[in-house]
Write a protein that binds this DNA or RNA. Structure first.
Lengths: 212, 212, 212, 212
DNA sequence: GATGAATGAGGCTTCATTCAT
DNA sequence: GATGAATGAAGCCTCATTCAT
């Protein structure tokens, strides 16, 4: 238990430390608004290390992207709904999605920012639709089971269904500032959250249950 | 003796010209990424005029915000669904919302950007929930009429319902870049658009029609 | 005669001022060794103006190149040897060349530096062999007249002859530091200069006069 | 044991390897433009070793200088013209000089660079005019023998004569980039080389043969 | 001797803003 | 109102050098 050294001598630790701080900075200010100096000041290292490990500001941003996407998907892994009743399963997936977005505003903001960047940096990343393979399979399985049981009548692809409930979960977090101004409602209050949670679930289930 | 001057002499024209260019610039690059120089080059005037008319970069951005929000609402005015069947009325409102977002990516991006800014500039604007008063009244009227006719059974506020379908319409445009990478689907293709249009409408109607 | 203003408000003056200082800096330290900060400090303006007027460091260097080459050639214009005896004419051209290099060490160093850069920047300049057209014509005329008079017997192109005497005039200035170390002679002393001046002239004349 | 290690264990080998790479780097980019990182990457060792063996960047540059000068002179040793006819001897010396410069552009560039540096580093080196002693003696011998035989009439020091033909041989290589732009001639083409080779030799011989 | 990580001063450049005319 | 030139703070990045192991 030696006294905390002023600087790290471990590349992995350094990278991790930088990435954590960078995630916050990019989420807070966007790519253009983020300041490398501010990131460096937030870490236990120096600006030079950022360039040593990540090349340039864009490289750092890309590394943040590469970290943040898989993180969502790996949390999804813990959802195990294979042996659950289809409606219950859907509710749990929607709960998870709503909670994840609400708890990870940083993630939501990074995704917004990347869309402002027109997805250019994400494309340069190795990330592609394979990251979504598992969740798509899970949804497909639920839809099929629901069909077989006669609970669901609607023909819909897992991708479309996923987009549908995700859009709402995302928007609640991404747009809460402007919605607060323009509609005078705090979407992130406990009450709104509870109402909205019921609303998406009910809508999805009613949609699937209704005839084509 | 006015032989068509290369530069504008009319303050209003100048302001309008600057605002148009600024909207594109802010929508393209965000607040931090926008460049006053680039805006000036895009106009028929010079940088000095931007500062003369709008004070500073933030002032210009605020002016863009003040222009873009009312524009959506004034388009909504043309929707006249007072004497329309509630379901048909809802479908027309959702159609309008979906079309408006798809046709005005600039608007969507400005709203995203303002959310990245945590709504700080919008708050400094005169814009508040009164801009949404009319559309809320329209939805309320539809919901009441639907209830009375026994078509709708669900108790839901106009605000929540509006957020629900808008979130999807917004997300389709705002997040199409990242969704394209992560799900491998182009949400803005004609086919996706048609499917999605049906999906929101069906889900909203099924939701309202189903029991609490 | 107002008191010297701290900053210029005249683009041409500013450009000229920057160029003068930049010439000295590049000549002293080379392109890579030159410091934009140091140049700025030497001028009556600020660093920003360098970028405003010249784009970047390379642009400034290119502008220096564009200034320095024509300067040599325009000085050559003052040589009028059309009605002079061929030998006398040649001697005057060599005198001019030797003097020009000795008096303009900056020019010599800039040319050296551009050769270290492999001529990349000069190529991006509008400068080409047309700048040398006049002097080539002058030499051609001398050679022809010398032939006609039976003074010269050697067939040689103006270009080759020009390279021959110029190489010596250039080298005396460009390489005087290393020659001083390695041969222990100061090529720029008055005595060396006098001896060398005689030597080039005599060699050129003897060469032209001797049979092929 | 020793299963061929990827890194050198032999200090001398390491030094030699670094020096070779450094010569190329300095010749390519100059002292200010050279990058220690790039040199290290080019070697079979690491940056630390450069500092271990040569102290600092200047120390490495100095070591390059100390290697490159003696190399020219040691090649000259192979010239044996003591028993050769004076004119033939001179021609062989000029041939050697012209060839050496043409074949060793790196050498030429290092000398240029050191002149850009005003010879400061060469002076800190042990190198002085003794490195030229041998070639001076050879030229002196030729001049004396030519005088005795009545072939040469010109009084000229070996140093001046050496500078005269060397300047041309050096310039052809050192300045070929700018000359190509400004005179539109490729001095390093086979044809130019042949013409120029004859020209220097003829000029030197004509000069020495002609009366004072 | 050897290595990869770390340092920090300083380099080049950008950019919102102001100013003289 | 309008303009081009100017400002200066601050941004991103590089690079010679050092250090712990």
């Amino acid at each position: 238990m030696s006294d905390d050294p002023p600087f790290l001598r471990d590349a992995d630790q350094t990278r991790k430390n930088i990435l954590e701080v960078a995630l916050k900075e990019f989420a807070e200010y966007g790519l253009a608004g983020a300041r490398v100096d501010r990131i460096a000041r937030g870490t236990r290292t120096t600006k030079g290390m950022i360039y040593y490990h990540f090349g340039d500001k864009d490289g750092l941003y890309k590394a943040v992207l590469e970290k943040v996407y898989p993180s969502l998907r790996s949390d999804e892994e813990h959802l195990d709904v294979r042996n659950t009743d289809p409606i219950e399963a859907l509710e749990r997936i929607i709960d998870f999605t709503l909670d994840y977005h609400e708890k990870h505003e940083d993630f939501v903001r990074i995704v917004m920012i990347e869309n402002i960047n027109k997805g250019e940096h994400l494309r340069k990343t190795g990330i592609d639709s394979t990251v979504s393979y598992r969740i798509m399979m899970v949804i497909a399985d639920i839809l099929i089971r629901g069909m077989v049981l006669g609970l669901f009548k609607r023909e819909v692809t897992p991708v479309d269904l996923h987009i549908f409930y995700t859009s709402f979960c995302f928007y609640r977090v991404s747009n809460h500032h402007t919605v607060s101004s323009v509609l005078g409602i705090n979407m992130l209050s406990a009450q709104s959250c509870a109402r909205h949670r019921r609303m998406v679930k009910d809508a999805v289930i009613a949609y699937l249950a209704s005839a084509d």
